[in-house]
């Protein structure tokens, strides 16, 4: 299947996905389950990665900007900007493409090869809508929370460096993260992440839903889902940055 056929196939699947649920009650249950699975369950990994990356950015900024001509507040400022503008939206979504994307692709792929999706179809259930829509909506709902959580914990990671090392004082760090703050940066970060969340879940669902074969193909679909959604996230990152910031 070439790229154009894939895009057509993906669009058809999304058309089928974004339709009225057969049962709102069942949809609601699935949605809440997915909120927990994709959102709440992602908090530990988001916390760990953000804290450490925040700390590392803070250390690196301090080392690379240590100069009598540059204010020491620059470290906090650069940490904040890096976390808000890029890490907590784009990089976080790349990381979550690995966690959430592979999970979705393998779950739906396994359902495909064990005929569970055929069972839904034969019952007259719109299987794409039932399985995929709650996943997309749940992740899109949760991503602003995850992004905000990541920004907060990342900045706390940087604060930890200021608190436990002598590279920068906590006061300088605090002044830096408050310096020249634009609330639009948060809006920009969240807007980008909403698009990335849709990309991760819809592409992973597509690869899982269209699996043919056995366990080997499910593994392959999971890998393809992560690789392709990552590439598309990077592509959209460039486009959205140009559109929203320039």
């Amino acid at each position: 299947m070439n790229a154009i056929e894939r895009v057509g196939d993906y669009s058809r699947l999304m058309w089928k996905t974004f339709s009225k649920p057969d049962s709102w009650k069942m949809f609601g249950k699935q949605y809440v389950r997915e909120l927990h699975k994709q959102g709440i369950n992602s908090l530990p990994i988001v916390c760990i990665i953000s804290v450490f990356i925040g700390a590392v950015i803070c250390i690196q900024m301090r080392i690379n900007t240590e100069s009598p001509f540059l204010p020491s507040q620059l470290t906090g400022y650069a940490t904040r900007e890096t976390m808000i503008l890029e890490f907590s939206s784009a990089i976080l979504c790349l990381i979550l493409a690995g966690k959430v994307g592979s999970n979705i692709a393998s779950e739906i792929g396994t359902m495909r090869i064990t005929e569970q999706i055929d069972a839904l179809d034969i019952m007259g259930v719109n299987s794409a809508n039932y399985l995929i829509l709650p996943k997309i909506l749940a992740f899109v709902t949760m991503i602003p929370c995850l992004v905000t959580f990541s920004i907060t914990t990342g900045l706390l990671g940087g604060f930890g460096v200021a608190l436990f090392t002598e590279m920068i004082t906590p006061m300088e760090y605090e002044q830096g993260i408050q310096y020249s703050f634009l609330p639009y940066s948060i809006q920009y970060s969240i807007e980008k992440s909403l698009v990335f969340a849709f990309i991760v879940t819809s592409i992973a669902s597509y690869y899982g839903y269209t699996v043919k074969g056995g366990a080997r193909e499910v593994g392959k679909a999971s890998t393809n889902a992560v690789v392709n959604s990552s590439v598309i996230i990077l592509l959209f990152d460039v486009m959205l940055t140009k559109l929203l910031l320039s």
Partner: peptide
């Protein structure tokens, strides 16, 4: 109006036996 028994049963593995049986009722 159709029921189908698949070769591998195709029960939904995230649901209990009771919930599997109740699934079509809950949907329709």
């Amino acid at each position: 109006e159709i029921g189908m028994l698949f070769q591998g049963s195709a029960l939904f593995d995230s649901l209990t036996v009771k919930d599997n049986v109740m699934f079509p009722l809950r949907m329709f």
